[in-house]
């Protein structure tokens, strides 16, 4: 793969790589470092990249593996970063605050999911990959991806309802 090919095909994936790394590593600093490290690796192996039919799936798989290795290496306290920069002016203030709160709650709930479910939620609901692509990235059958995804979605919703009800009563 030539330099220009690399810039056109692999470099645009940097945001997806970063977001996936952040989903797994939690801290944005670590996700940034991981992204830089991964791109260095990809750059070094750019001569071999044309062997892979789906370079994007390959890059995502590499990201997943790298981050899981990082996590294994040190399961230590990470910085938590919670986003709540949601904007919608149409709802009343009370509702707005509530919604803001529950949006950032979603982040925390995903964080508590098992790694496989985290990955599937990230790849499907945030990056919008097809089931087959997710299967390739995670080395899973598409049906297994569906099952995992369904479980993750249901868990997030149930937890949100639970917390919502606690808030009221």
């Amino acid at each position: 793969m030539k330099q220009t090919d690399f810039l056109n095909t692999v470099l645009p994936l940097k945001d997806k790589v970063y977001r996936l790394a952040k989903r797994l590593l939690v801290s944005s600093d670590e996700a940034e470092d991981a992204t830089q490290e991964l791109y260095l690796k990809l750059w070094k192996s750019k001569d071999k990249l044309h062997q892979y039919k789906n370079v994007e799936a390959f890059a995502m798989t590499m990201t997943k593996n790298y981050c899981l290795d990082q996590l294994k290496a040190k399961r230590s306290g990470n910085l938590k970063l919670v986003h709540s920069n949601y904007t919608d002016n149409n709802i009343s203030l009370q509702k707005d605050v509530e919604l803001k709160d529950s949006v950032s709650r979603v982040h925390e709930l995903i964080e508590q999911l098992p790694e496989k479910q985290k990955l599937v939620i990230q790849l499907r609901d945030i990056e919008n990959y097809e089931f087959e692509e997710i299967g390739k990235i995670l080395d899973l059958e598409p049906t297994a991806v569906r099952v995992t995804l369904s479980r993750a979605r249901k868990t997030i919703r149930e937890q949100l309802i639970k917390q919502h009800n606690y808030g009221i009563s």
Partner: peptide, 9 residues
């Protein structure tokens, strides 16, 4: 509303 929070996130 829960879905709104999820999709917004």
């Amino acid at each position: 509303l829960e879905y709104k929070a999820m999709f917004n996130y």
